[in-house]
């Protein structure tokens, strides 16, 4: 297993590779789904586990994510990069499950224990995302993490952490603006690469 991780680390999964796998899945190729799972399950499981806070729900959510990809490969949003589409599906499915089980308060329980240095998908993106979120002022970081990992509305977040709704909205806007500015060069580079390889069809 470690050798596999190392190999993946040396050849990170590109957006183009994900798109090619999605196209094969669209054609009903289950081996493409298995490959996509092998390459991305660590990233997406880490994400759904962070949102849901406990393994059983996270495992079920992960199954939901890949089943959704299998059944709806054509939903691959052309406005997003393929890797972004995966994290978006994973977040949406986990947050939906979180709301169903009303576990929003448990969402941070896994955070401290979840320390694993291995990065099998887009390690530069992962490091940059952590660095960028860490560079926000604490209030913006707190609100954005609440919003992202709980999927709660501003008024629900305000009720949870005891701050005015207006402040929640302002912190969310300013934090996302800053993140957007930080991410922009990297995203633009990847969009250009995707366009150049004809991956935007």
């Amino acid at each position: 297993m470690d050798q596999e991780i190392q190999a993946d680390h040396e050849f990170p999964l590109s957006n183009e590779a994900v798109l090619a796998l999605v196209r094969r899945i669209e054609g009903g190729d289950s081996s493409a789904l298995a490959t996509l799972y092998d390459k991305t399950n660590r990233l997406l499981f880490g994400l759904v586990l962070r949102i849901l806070g406990e393994r059983t729900s996270a495992e079920e959510a992960l199954l939901d994510v890949y089943t959704h990809i299998w059944k709806n490969p054509a939903s691959c949003d052309p406005a997003l990069l393929p890797l972004e589409w995966l994290t978006t599906i994973a977040r949406d499915r986990a947050v939906a499950r979180l709301h169903w089980s009303k576990q929003a308060k448990r969402r941070q329980s896994f955070k401290a224990a979840n320390r694993n240095s291995a990065m099998t998908v887009a390690p530069d993106r992962q490091e940059f995302a952590r660095f960028s979120i860490g560079s926000l002022v604490p209030a913006q970081q707190e609100i954005l993490e609440w919003a992202y990992y709980s999927g709660l509305s501003c008024s629900e977040i305000a009720a949870q952490i005891g701050k005015p709704v207006g402040a929640i909205k302002t912190h969310a806007r300013l934090g996302l603006n800053k993140l957007s500015d930080l991410f922009r060069p990297m995203i633009e580079r990847e969009v250009e690469a995707k366009t150049a390889t004809g991956g935007n069809q």
């Binding site: 399950n41 990233l43 499981f45 990069l81 589409w85 979840n114 993106r125 952590r130 992202y148 995203i187």
Partner: peptide
């Protein structure tokens, strides 16, 4: 912002899913 939100998904630490999930 949709790009930004999707990019936030990369901030969570990777965790290997149990083998039986595959």
């Amino acid at each position: 912002f949709a790009h930004t939100i999707a990019a936030m998904g990369f901030a969570a630490e990777e965790v290997a899913a149990p083998d039986y999930i595959r």
